[in-house]
Computed example of a mutant assay.
Amino acid sequence: MWHDLVVVQIPIVEKILRTVAVYALILVLFRLAGKRGLAGLNTFDMVVVFLLSNVVQNAIIGNDNSLLGGTIGAVTLIVVNSGVTRWLARDPRAARLLEGTPTTVVRDGRLVPGALRELALRPSELEHAIRLQNGDDVSDVARARLEPDGQLLVTLKAAEQSATRGDVEELRQRLESIERLLATLTEQQGGQGRR
């Protein structure tokens, strides 16, 4: 029993190469699937992710069921992913190549023709994202775009945006200055009436 836990049953280099190859394959598949696949995982997407992990499991572990073999595979995945993430953070060209570029879906309150269809994005998903970001409908949106990581970013038209704390603080300061001015005018009028 202990032997099966700690003895790696395939060469360690093969284990690492298998893990890196499967990582690269999954990266390419997700890149080809597009941004929409990352935008919001629905039930079907979750089924695919669960099945995908099961399908590639044997490609990573091979004929090795040892604890040490699994540990080597897990560490390899983490190291490779960390390296790729750092590379993408430093190299904008690599980020464009591997992640893609944002796609504008709404401009000046109107849908960009064909953008939703190209991304396989349903209008209800776009409407939901707009409501989550305090808009009522597409006409409230200055610009909306689907980022390479699958996030739908919505910029509301200036008139449709909610007040910020800074806006409220500015109004409070203006009201205080108006109150001071009114108090000064009232004192001046009171002083003139006594003459």
Rank of each mutant, 00 (worst) to 15 (best):
M1F: 14
H3K: 13
H3E: 11
H3G: 13
D4M: 13
V8C: 10
Q9V: 04
P11D: 11
I12W: 13
V13Y: 04
E14S: 14
L17R: 07
A24V: 15
L27E: 01
V28D: 04
R31M: 08
L32M: 13
L32I: 08
L32G: 06
A33E: 11
A33C: 11
A39G: 03
G40R: 06
D45T: 07
M46F: 13
V47N: 00
S53V: 11
V56N: 00
I60W: 01
G62A: 09
S66E: 10
S66A: 03
L68A: 15
L68W: 10
G69V: 08
G73D: 02
V75F: 09
T76D: 00
L77A: 13
L77K: 02
V79T: 11
V79P: 03
N81G: 14
S82A: 11
R86I: 05
W87V: 08
L88I: 07
A89G: 10
A89V: 06
R90G: 04
D91E: 02
D91F: 11
A95W: 05
A95Q: 08
L98M: 12
L98S: 09
P102R: 06
V105K: 02
V106R: 01
V106K: 03
R107S: 01
G109L: 06
R110V: 02
R110Y: 00
P113S: 10
G114A: 14
R117W: 09
E118G: 10
L119Y: 12
A120W: 03
L121M: 14
R122I: 08
R122V: 14
P123E: 10
S124I: 09
S124Y: 02
E127N: 14
H128P: 01
A129R: 06
N134V: 01
G135W: 00
V138Q: 07
D140V: 05
R143W: 06
E147L: 12
P148G: 00
G150I: 07
Q151L: 07
L153C: 12
V154R: 01
V154N: 02
T155G: 01
L156C: 05
K157N: 09
A159D: 05
Q161T: 04
T164K: 02
R165L: 13
G166I: 11
D167A: 04
E170H: 09
Q173S: 08
R174S: 02
L175C: 01
E176A: 14
E179D: 08
L182R: 14
T184K: 00
L185S: 00
T186N: 11
Q188Y: 03
G190H: 06
Q192N: 07
Q192W: 06
R194H: 11
